[in-house]
Nucleic acid binder design. Structure first.
Lengths: 141, 141
DNA sequence: CGGTATCCTTGTGGATACTG
DNA sequence: CAGTATCCACAAGGATACCG
């Protein structure tokens, strides 16, 4: 727990000034790992894709129809990025026409829980946030 | 819980085709609320700022020194965005030189928990993810 | 000290056309 | 069907300079 908090605070704990022999600032490395996931989770389509894959394998164009507004290009890119991180797996059935099914890996499934928690927070507080924004935007210039 | 999952899946539940009289697709509204928070959490500096403010009020330049690599411009922008969403509050002490303290609101503090959970997931799985990436990048062209 | 203003580079995402 | 390739618009973020 503490390691996570520390990792999100930059390199303050290295203020003692000792040399890190491990070949890089491990605090920075941790920090990057966390921010990496936050960035992936925060991009426009990743989590929509993950949630759509929750109930089992889905084909490319099914996915495309299920996720409103996504372009073919972005769906491909998002799936590749998720696949690269080991969150999604791609199964090709070499037929005519070709069939490609995407599904969550165990890792991908395990990500759903913390993301859902964040989603719950967002839903629970969205009215409060909307109000705060309205208030802020209404304030004197 | 189910509402969150639904909100992350686009407008599939409106497939019944009935008219939404509330002045907009509420599913889409929920979806935007969640994605909004994911985007804020996922941007480059927001969570570093929130975590740095965890232990109490911090002044602008203290914040700047604590968060390695952040530019003055981005710190200002990030703080304004967080303030607008009601996550951070800004307290000005009109003295010479001026003093401005930033601190988390109750809402901001409550956000730390789900974000930390996601951070823990990231830390717990970073080796797995790194390995998946290395594997993916090594695959045949 | 705590900002704005300005310019610039890069990355993200959309539209369209083409392909095995 | 499941993609690539190409081009383009815009937003995020960094560098620098100036200001109350």
């Amino acid at each position: 727990m503490d390691t996570v908090a520390t990792s999100l605070q930059g390199g303050t704990s290295s203020s003692a000034g000792h040399i890190d022999v491990t070949g890089g600032d491990h605090v920075a490395v941790r920090c990057r790992a966390v921010n990496d996931i936050l960035a992936r989770v925060g991009d426009k389509w990743s989590m929509q894709v993950v949630m759509t894959l929750a109930d089992g394998p889905v084909r490319f164009n099914e996915l495309r129809r299920a996720i409103d507004g996504i372009s073919q290009r972005m769906l491909t890119r998002t799936l590749r990025a998720l696949e690269r991180d080991g969150l999604v797996s791609r199964a090709v059935t070499p037929s005519v026409p070709p069939r490609v099914d995407y599904s969550l890996t165990d890792l991908g499934r395990s990500l759903r829980e913390p993301v859902l928690a964040l989603g719950s927070w967002a839903m629970a507080n969205r009215e409060t946030i909307e109000a705060a924004r309205a208030e802020f935007d209404r304030r004197p210039v």
